[in-house]
Design a protein around this nucleic acid. Structure first.
Lengths: 194, 194
DNA sequence: GTCTATAGGATGATAGAC
DNA sequence: GTCTATCATCCTATAGAC
């Protein structure tokens, strides 16, 4: 296989594993297993685990912004705010993408990951304010909703959707429709794990 | 020193360290250093690192709910919604408390931490709905704001407050007043680290 | 381009003294 | 109640073959 294809394959696998276990909780061997290559090869291609995580973050952010730009450009009668919300939730189908970013967001103390996380987060902020035309208040509200969604994905709250009426109420309220996507992804994931 | 006092001291230190480095990123040696005891003693008192983390979470949640109940009981002319928001931000002064919880919230996949995180989060939800009398929509909005606050604390966004106008705009918008507390805590922390 | 073998370092936990 | 010493394990990264 061409080096570049293999690289992308490993990045996808790493995104999933980092999303599940966090930066420190992830081992290069775990990523290698998920990508079906040897552990030293993962290190060989990306240099260090840290550099690999940074590439995962950069890729995730690029995909996020590109999905937002597509949703923004897609002229339809649905209001922008809702279009972007739906686009965000749909990103959850790309497993680990939102969660890898979220893991970086709680590691702001790290001298290398911290600055990258801050600048990544602020580039989303800038998109909202400058490209999507949101006000500061609208942006704050949108980002807050996004962080709640990330949290509930991180918590695997969907696992309790059927068994807990209050979880159901919260998820139904928090997700801008498209909750079905989440439930499907969660079911897939559980199946894969067993 | 009495065992119970030492225990509480270690729990406080562990809360700070887990908040800074996350569950996997934290070492029992790091906690021991922060609590000024030996590493084996930390393990001796709590059994395992995992059990210690669970106690940190339980303690953090108890403090959170107790702060909310106090804010709720405190009869004043300030609306409940705002009183609770202020109480939440004030919890950031207790270093690591909100962040340790946040770290648990992104580890929902873990078979031990996951269930604890979910039930902890839902106990806050229940407080809002049942004790504070919030509607499902109000609760969702409040929790979303809380998660954004957690994220910005995790990112150490306050570190860029003076140097980046957009960061300033975001923080000014997202924090229900009391942003001064955050900036003070952040400054303290930076001083302590150097 | 990809692997096997392995070095080197850290970490959680235990044993046992005081 | 608290420490020192230490073991066993795991993990990142390197060396080097094919």
């Amino acid at each position: 296989m061409r080096a570049e294809d293999r690289r992308e394959l490993i990045l996808e696998a790493a995104t999933r594993v980092f999303g599940d276990f966090g930066y420190e909780g992830t081992t290069t061997a775990g990523i290698a297993r998920a990508a079906d290559v040897s552990q030293p090869y993962v290190v060989r291609v990306f240099g260090t685990k840290e550099k690999l995580f940074l590439e995962v973050l950069q890729r995730a952010l690029a995909l996020l912004l590109s999905a937002f730009r597509a949703a923004l450009a897609d002229a339809s009668d649905i209001p922008v705010h809702r279009r972007l919300g739906i686009a965000y939730v749909e990103l959850a189908a790309n497993r680990g993408l939102l969660l890898s970013l979220m893991h970086a967001y709680v590691l702001g103390r790290d001298p290398v990951i911290g600055p990258v996380g801050r600048s990544g987060f602020m580039s989303v902020y800038r998109f909202m304010r400058d490209e999507a035309g949101f006000s500061a208040d609208e942006t704050q509200e949108f980002l807050a909703g996004g962080m709640l969604i990330n949290t509930m994905i991180g918590l695997r709250m969907t696992d309790d959707y059927d068994s807990d009426a209050q979880v159901r109420e919260l998820l139904d309220t928090a997700f801008p429709e498209k909750l079905d996507i989440l439930l499907l992804v969660a079911a897939d994931q559980r199946a894969e794990e067993s």
